[in-house]
Design a protein around this nucleic acid. Sequence first.
DNA 1: CGAGGCCTTGATGCACCTCAACCGACGTGG
DNA 2: CCACGTCGGTTGAGGTGCATCAAGGCCTCG
Lengths: 249, 249
Amino acid sequence: MLSDSSTKRFEISHIKPNCATCSFRELCLPLGLNEQEVKVLGDVVSYKRKVQRGSYLHRTGTAFQTLFAIRRGFFKTCVLEEDGRQQVTGFYMTGELLGLDAISSEIHTCDAIALEDSEVCEIPFAKLEEISLTIPSLMHQFHKIMSREIVRDHGVMMLLGSMKAEERLATFLLNLSRRFSIRGYSASDFNLRMTREEIGSYLGLKLETVSRAFSKLQDENIIVVDNKHIQINDIERLKIKMGNSSCAA
Amino acid sequence: MLSDSSTKRFEISHIKPNCATCSFRELCLPLGLNEQEVKVLGDVVSYKRKVQRGSYLHRTGTAFQTLFAIRRGFFKTCVLEEDGRQQVTGFYMTGELLGLDAISSEIHTCDAIALEDSEVCEIPFAKLEEISLTIPSLMHQFHKIMSREIVRDHGVMMLLGSMKAEERLATFLLNLSRRFSIRGYSASDFNLRMTREEIGSYLGLKLETVSRAFSKLQDENIIVVDNKHIQINDIERLKIKMGNSSCAA
DNA sequence: CGAGGCCTTGATGCACCTCAACCGACGTGG
DNA sequence: CCACGTCGGTTGAGGTGCATCAAGGCCTCG
């Protein structure tokens, strides 16, 4: 099921993992740094903490010490209301940073849970700030990453606030497609790591509605759905689906 | 209508505006800085750009140069889809920062529009990063502010994804109440700066639904609504409204 | 082989949208 | 000064997209 994750290797496995040799460095904090700077960054990062599928990387309410960069795998983050309602706030893949929400209060404000067996790099935040003082491009890249997260969230707010079920799902699939594509995987053929319920929570829909929306897109020959395996047949029509609730406009 | 904004003065008006004398410095970037550091920050900030009600502070697609700190007034930010749909992504008041979304691509990704006559301080972002290298507490405070924005957005996603109309409005009012309160205004008596339509856009509802929700809360003697003037009579019951869609849980 | 997790599909209900009428406040121009 | 149009808000009536409830299928795993 996870066959696509084996189509790209991170580095020759007997070399000690390191930012400098990480094939995802261009998606991550090292972007824009020179070799010397990457080395300084690399020296404060702890590599390869394994996180098993289903287990927590961090929990709401616990103390914040480190950011996490995903080296391999797939995560969801979710927030809980007191009354037990749960909302998935994001899905994160290789090269993306987790824990940014916790900087403000030094307490994690969401849970991060691995959706497949994963590995993360730990970035002690105090150290990151410290070395940022001597590496302007690192500081700048970090700011860009935080800003990107804000932009992403605004996109989700747009989606939740003004799109219909089918548009939400189309937007979601295209977003995944793009992110897989950037990482060297197929943009039109991939496996979902999350359940219908998790997709629904993220998109503000019930799992049945998600399922029906998948079926509808399949009936229209836009995608092929086989359980968690998704094949996008007609990406252009999928893009049209994203924003056609008021075609007249 | 804006009488409450005259209940607090910013500083004696003949003194040149400055971070060091700004009464909102504890809500803004200077938090945690010593006098010397505030002075360095103050020297890179341009003060008192006036923005008239209804006019744009920045527009989607324009180049990003500076962050804006609100010195006086009230703003909304909104994103547009190609098809004309609009989504309000936030309301911002004194001491809050605008423009954080634009750091990632150096292009503004939303419009910021003044909802009342306002004044902002301009903070050239390149300069801010530059002086952050020598003022660790400034860098840290900036990171906290960005992180806070992410947390706020996650809260909105929660709201949009899993709350009913009345809960959304209650959450919204309590959020405004808290923010007014922090700024020295009444937590239970304030004027809305935005229209029902803007509230609806932010909350993912139509303006009629917002209006009905206001009426319902008034019928229950929880609030008194007089056009844009809101009085909260029973803040505890309003808090209960926030999260009672599934009381059983 | 049975249990449980995940998904799909159908039937029904309801929360919110849509459309429409009306009201008051405000500004403008005759 | 009032007539008028505009804008923002409220309220009602009816429609609909999604939630809810329910049944059943497939796959995995013990």
